[in-house]
Design a protein around this nucleic acid. Structure first.
Lengths: 246, 246
DNA sequence: ACGCTTTGCGTATATGATACGCAATAAGCG
DNA sequence: CGCTTATTGCGTATCATATACGCAAAGCGT
């Protein structure tokens, strides 16, 4: 039975990997999976993941709530489709690019952008990726390290490390209340200033005092991301050199 | 008005920072905030975050659902309390430990353990930490770098980097289906073997073939975590040396 | 034109969050 | 020792949500 592996899988995965049965002759579909997923993504972008309900989605699509279930097995299924569709194609570089650091940086920055445009992704990721959309990104990241002396296991560790950082940084940035004024410290900074007493949290108080939570005047939030990424890639560089020597 | 900052805050924060009004004479409370939070944590641990509902929680506590609302403003509030309570106290080291790497490693490993014991934490974190429990951990991590020539902003970047990694690694590990047999590749590996065709995902296929997703016979899942953490800290080491030279 | 197939959707149910208000109870006061 | 009052426990009701089930509508092949 070559197909028994798919039996316990979410319905969405079977569809995404092209295992769905080809339809033929019935009624003309007024709805399509693509339209549903696109509308769901738009709704989550505009009003947040909490606002994404089957009823509101149907309203936006001009159909009855139950119509959606003809195309999606359930809400979990829908979210799987969303996760597959939303990142789009990963950046392309050859199989073994000479500049692993530049390639990986580009990969991380583009993925960071995806997460910033769709902050709800982070709240949705609960299982390892098994859909073509996310696996394509994973493959691209592994390819970025293709010209490197690292072994396969190390490459995977590195990719996961970068991925975790991108996700975490995007989530943090998205969750910070927006800072409208350039002079303002931001609500978070103001709160920490009051709460982090030097007696109880000395190190934190020093950080607050040094203005760590105030926006750096000459830098955008992207620069913070790049700074952390550079620390991380320095570590990868150490590993690459070590592997090259061995 | 020195207190106006707390007006827009979640109720839970005002309680946690000791700003709640002292009660006096009413009826003897049969319920307490501590009991509620402890029961909620236990329920989430045992049956997952999805199973945590006010009704099920009340059932477990032997009280009516609406009784909970006397102690918690709502479900969001409850989750804030849970996030504050669950990590416990951070590891202690002096204000400026000589061995920053050892200290930060200990911090990360202990936090990793917390996340593994309570995997639902990751799904709950939606805003920057503002409760004493989480800020204590943040302070501890900053203290681990206290003996370091890094400036405050760099220290914060490093701590966030480590935090993101710990969270991501824990989430990934917790979401992997358990591998009962030692010889088995695990369901994820089997699935990837079938799905990652060399034509479409060459780098991924090579990783699968190399057994990256099969459990390393001589290593536990903890070792994977340590490996990634070491890459990361190597990068921090580079930054420390650079700062020391400057 | 007929029937099969597949889609769209109305109805119903179960679960969950939570507003509101009353009743039970205990501390302090006369 | 009974009254006042603050405060808790909880019953009832409302509203949002996911989704099972089955019928009706509408193309396609014959």
């Amino acid at each position: 039975m070559p197909d028994d592996i798919g039996d316990e899988l979410p319905h969405a995965l079977n569809v995404l990997w092209g295992r769905a049965k080809p339809k033929g002759r019935g009624r003309t579909p007024a709805l399509s999976l693509e339209r549903i997923v696109a509308a769901a993504v738009a709704l989550a972008d505009e009003e947040g993941l909490a606002a994404l309900s089957m009823a509101r989605l149907a309203e936006r699509l001009g159909c009855a709530p139950m119509s959606l279930y003809r195309h999606v097995a359930g809400k979990d299924d829908l979210q799987l489709f969303m996760l597959d569709a939303v990142p789009g194609p990963p950046p392309e570089f050859g199989t073994a690019p000479a500049d692993w650091r530049g390639s990986l940086t580009r990969w991380a920055v583009e993925l960071f952008g995806v997460y910033l445009r769709h902050p709800w992704i982070v709240q949705l990721v609960n299982s390892p990726p098994m859909d073509p959309g996310q696996l394509a990104w994973l493959d691209a990241a592994l390819r970025a390290l293709g010209g490197t002396p690292l072994d396969q296991r190390a490459r995977f560790s590195v990719v996961m490390l970068v991925l975790h950082y991108v996700r975490g940084a995007a989530q943090l940035l998205a969750s910070m209340p927006a800072e409208p004024e350039e002079g303002a410290d931001g609500a978070y900074a103001a709160l920490l200033t009051e709460l982090a007493s030097p007696g109880r949290f000395p190190a934190l108080a020093r950080a607050v005092e040094a203005g760590v939570f105030a926006p750096d005047p000459g830098a955008g939030p992207d620069d913070d991301f790049r700074a952390g990424l550079d620390y991380l890639l320095d570590g990868v560089g150490v590993a690459v050199e070590r592997a090259a020597r061995a």
